[in-house]
Simulated scan of single mutants.
Amino acid sequence: MPSLAQMNGSLHIHNFYIGKLKAKQEQLFDSDPELAMLLDNVAAVLSEHAVVLTNDIAAMEDDDT
């Protein structure tokens, strides 16, 4: 199982790329709506995984106390 630091790092990376995807999606919305929708779907999958990571991190922090 990954350490708490690794999980926090992974969560940070997820959030970074979610932001990048959403920014690019906004840029492409008018010129290429299909690609914008694809980027939105990828961001949604990463967001779901980020929620799982957040819950796992909270559980690990609770176990440490």
Score class of each variant (00 low, 15 high):
L4T: 04
N8Y: 05
S10P: 02
L53V: 00
T54W: 14
H49Y: 08
I57D: 00
M60Q: 09
L21I: 02
E61V: 10
A58I: 07
P2K: 10
I57A: 04
E48Q: 14
Y17I: 00
Y17E: 01
A59C: 00
L11A: 10
M60L: 12
A43C: 03
N55K: 15
M37P: 00
G19L: 00
D30H: 12
S31L: 10
K24P: 01
L38W: 03
S47F: 02
N41E: 11
H14K: 04
E48G: 14
L39W: 00
D32I: 05
P33A: 02
N15V: 05
S3L: 06
L28E: 05
L53A: 02
K24F: 06
N15S: 05
N55V: 07
A50I: 03
D64R: 12
D30V: 11
L11R: 12
S47L: 05
V51E: 14
T54N: 15
E26C: 10
N55A: 13
A43Y: 00
F29T: 14
V42D: 02
S3D: 05
I18Q: 01
A36I: 05
N55W: 07
D62A: 11
H49N: 09
A50F: 00
V51I: 13
S3I: 07
A50S: 11
E34P: 07
L11F: 10
D30F: 14
G19K: 02
I57M: 04
L21N: 01
D56M: 12
K20Y: 06
S31N: 10
V52P: 05
K20P: 01
A36Y: 03
T54V: 10
D30A: 15
L38H: 02
A5H: 07
S10C: 06
D40Y: 10
L46R: 02
S31W: 06
P2E: 06
K22H: 05
L38E: 06
A23D: 09
D56I: 05
V51A: 13
M1T: 11
D32W: 03
H12P: 07
L53C: 01
S47Y: 03
S10D: 13
Q25E: 14
I18C: 00
I18W: 01
K22G: 00
H14S: 01
D32S: 09
M1G: 09
D56F: 03
A58P: 06
N8Q: 12
N41A: 14
V45T: 15
N41R: 14
L35H: 12
F29Q: 15
H49V: 07
A43D: 02
A36F: 01
K22C: 04
N41C: 08
Y17S: 00
